[in-house]
Amino acid sequence: METAAPPGVEATEAAIAMIRLLREKHGEVMFHQSGGCCDGSSPMCYPKGEFRLGQRDVLLGHVDGAAFYMGGDQYELWKHTRLTLDVVRGRGAGFSLEAPEGVRFLIRSDLCATP
């Protein structure tokens, strides 16, 4: 699973505060970046171990100690960008842990190389 040199994921203070709140309520957490429609292209937060990783998932890094993964195919298309986990007011669908708190995790991106 940890096949590539992780480019790293950073997190805003607000995102870290939310991770800590979720950790108090649900125990250790993990992230998996989604693709596709509706709430796709957004990070999903689950209790650690809830999401079964596949051999092609890539560990991008850790945010406040929580592992952050992405599907291998998607990683190939994202790897030229540096990601920052943020949190905004909202209510994503999917099974992400933060939705009942009235917030939604979000990825902000910067360039690390020209594609």
Binding site: S34, G35, G36, C37, C38, D39, G40, M44, A93, G94
Partner: peptide, 10 residues
């Protein structure tokens, strides 16, 4: 289910 890939996998 209709939605996105990570939840689809889950």
């Amino acid at each position: 289910f209709t939605g996105e890939t990570t939840t689809g996998r889950l």
